[in-house]
């Protein structure tokens, strides 16, 4: 069994609603567990928001693609945008054990994606950022 869905989004956070609706339907059609659905929503929310907010520092209207595929073993998410190079797997790891007054307010998004996914892979190809995130299935 395998299935794939793809969506092109504009660089506008209002688009996240459309993405969420698509994913909720895709998850229901493919029997995502509660944990799997949560992990997918979280990865999509964090990484799409990063693209929308940071990929095009000069603003303007742009689009990016999100592709979701699933089989028995894993859910894979692929993001493609033509914004400035950004390699999330190389983003510095967060120290969440620091005392409260030393804790930065930002930078948690990628930390959470790392926690919820089993693999993250980035490449820059033809002036595009291509990011793959894999969430293994059958985990508790």
């Amino acid at each position: 069994m395998s299935a794939t869905v793809q969506i092109t989004l504009q660089n506008n956070t209002d688009e996240l609603q459309r993405l969420n609706e698509l994913v909720a339907q895709f998850g229901a059609d493919n029997n995502f567990t509660v944990q799997e659905e949560y992990a997918v929503f979280l990865c999509l929310e964090e990484l799409s928001t990063n693209i929308i907010n940071y990929a095009w520092p000069n603003g303007g209207d742009h689009t990016f693609d999100v592709r979701l595929s699933v089989d028995e073993t894993a859910i894979k998410i692929e993001f493609q945008d033509d914004g400035i190079p950004f390699d999330p797997p190389k983003f510095p790891k967060q120290d969440i054990t620091k005392p409260v007054h030393e804790r930065p307010i930002g930078g948690l998004g990628i930390h959470l994606v790392r926690q919820q996914s089993s693999e993250m892979f980035y490449e820059r190809l033809d002036e595009k950022n291509i990011l793959f995130v894999k969430i293994k299935r059958g985990q508790s």
Partner: peptide, 20 residues
Amino acid sequence: GFIASIGIRLLLANIKQLNP
């Protein structure tokens, strides 16, 4: 039913404000 980093940031910012 769901919390992303933006929600965590809001909670942490207020914890940091209350702490002192």
